[in-house]
Computed example of a mutant assay.
Amino acid sequence: MRPGPRTVALTAVVGGFLLGFLGFAWIKWVPYPFAELGNSTATWAVGAFAFGYWARSGWVRSAVGAAVLLVVAVPSYYLAATLMQGDDLAVVWASTSLLWMVFGVLAGVVFGIGGDWARGAGWRQVLGTALPAAVFFEEAARFARRANDPSYPSGSAWNVAIDVTLGLLAVVLIGRSNRQRALALAVALPLAMVIFVGFALAGG
Rank of each mutant, 00 (worst) to 15 (best):
G155M: 04
V197H: 07
V171P: 00
T82P: 05
N39K: 15
A42I: 04
M193C: 12
L169A: 10
I162C: 08
S154N: 14
G122K: 12
A184I: 07
R146C: 10
F199T: 06
A170H: 03
G58C: 04
A140S: 07
G58H: 07
L183H: 11
R145F: 15
A48M: 05
Y77T: 00
F49D: 01
Y53D: 04
G104I: 02
L173V: 14
G115H: 05
V71N: 02
P3R: 03
W158L: 11
R124P: 08
L89P: 03
G47E: 03
V171I: 15
T96P: 10
A147H: 12
M1G: 13
R6D: 14
G104Y: 01
R6S: 14
L19C: 06
S156T: 10
A184S: 12
S57Q: 05
F137M: 07
F136I: 09
Q125R: 14
S151N: 15
R61H: 11
A12H: 02
V172C: 14
A121T: 15
S95N: 15
Y32P: 03
F51G: 03
A161P: 08
L22S: 08
G4D: 12
F196M: 11
T165D: 11
D116A: 04
V172H: 15
F103R: 09
I174Y: 02
A90P: 09
A147D: 13
V14E: 06
